[in-house]
């Protein structure tokens, strides 16, 4: 099944204004009707939690109301409809979007992706022994870089039964497990995306079920740190990072937000194909990251003037 990845996440929130401000400061574009888009048109949508157009909430604290998956074509939508209709109600909207629940009770939708194909430069670096990444006289440290999220990268669910939950995605929707934290959960990628993961699961008691975090891909580590330090400067609460994960290799920086989840900037994630052999290890601090830093106040070196006694 040619599923690409999360196309849009829909939230029902208690503080719409705060969420709108946060999403714009995070770097998404407000396009109206509660939608905020990355450069490729993947999106976050926020509505007042009592909005009747939203799917019903979980009984937990999570504000996530629907995960919309983007697929390549109508044939994939037809396959999904045929497969999932075998054991659950699958609704079909006028525009062809399918909606149903997964085996954990998360509200899902599937549609032909609305994302655009990006054609943008990677972060360009100069590395001894390699051909220069940037032209001579081209500057690397651009404080005015826009540092916009490029595309919705992945989501992470808290859920009570990781094995049952993962089987829904692997056996019914063709996702592949790339790596796994024993007793915590698997990293999953769908067939039309070779990113290390678009979905990760953390096994928890049922009263915790919800969205642990979501992430957008940035150009590279420099834009990730530029965007994150701008958030800190605006007074937002850094939760974890910057650092670099081991599984997936992605750089990370997580922020608290009024949508009641963590918003991560990520960059430079590994890509895998069918040749990849899944790794597994216990989730520990060591396994969780290669290194971890924390933003501190700026500083500069210096000494007294030469004529000082």
């Amino acid at each position: 099944m040619r599923i690409i990845g999360p196309d849009e996440l829909v939230f029902g929130v208690d503080n719409v204004k705060a969420c709108e401000t946060f999403l714009v400061d995070y770097g998404l574009a407000s396009v109206g009707n509660g939608r905020f888009t990355a450069l490729d048109n993947t999106a976050i949508t926020v509505r007042e939690k009592s909005d009747p157009s939203l799917p019903a909430p979980l009984k937990t604290a999570t504000m996530l109301r629907q995960t919309i998956w983007g697929v390549e074509d109508q044939a994939t939508l037809d396959q999904i409809e045929a497969e999932l209709s075998r054991d659950r109600a699958v609704a079909k909207a006028a525009d062809g979007t399918l909606s149903c629940k997964d085996d954990s009770g998360f509200e899902l939708a599937f549609r032909i992706t609305r994302r655009t194909v990006l054609n943008l430069p990677a972060e360009l670096i100069n590395s001894p022994g390699a051909a220069p990444g940037r032209a001579v006289n081209a500057i690397g440290a651009n404080e005015d870089a826009e540092a916009k999220p490029r595309t919705l990268s992945h989501i992470v669910y808290f859920l009570p039964n990781m094995d049952e939950a993962a089987r829904f995605y692997t056996d019914r929707l063709g996702f592949v497990v790339t790596d796994k934290f024993t007793n915590t959960g698997p990293f999953l990628r769908p067939q039309a995306n070779n990113d290390h993961h678009v979905l990760f699961m953390i096994q928890t008691p049922d009263y915790m079920q919800g969205l642990e975090h979501l992430a957008f891909h940035m150009q590279g580590p420099t834009e990730l740190m530029l965007a994150g330090s701008r958030m800190v400067k605006k007074g937002y609460e850094s939760f974890w990072g910057p650092g670099r994960h081991k599984f997936g290799s992605n750089w990370f920086w997580y922020f608290n937000c009024p949508l009641g989840t963590h918003f991560e900037y990520d960059a430079d994630m590994d890509k895998h194909d069918g040749e990849w052999i899944e790794r597994e290890t216990a989730l520990t601090k060591e396994a969780s990251q290669m290194f971890l830093f924390e933003n501190v106040e700026k500083w500069s070196p210096g000494g007294p003037p030469p004529d000082a006694k």
Binding site: T60, A61, T62, M63, F158, T204, Y207, M208, G210, L211, E212, E237, F239, N256, C257, P258, G260, T261, H262
Partner: peptide, 18 residues
């Protein structure tokens, strides 16, 4: 703001959340 847990202001008891 991490996961939306809500606590009573008067005694700090978590009523909903992780």
């Amino acid at each position: 703001a991490s996961h939306g847990a809500l606590f009573r202001i008067e005694d700090g008891v978590c009523e909903v959340g992780p």
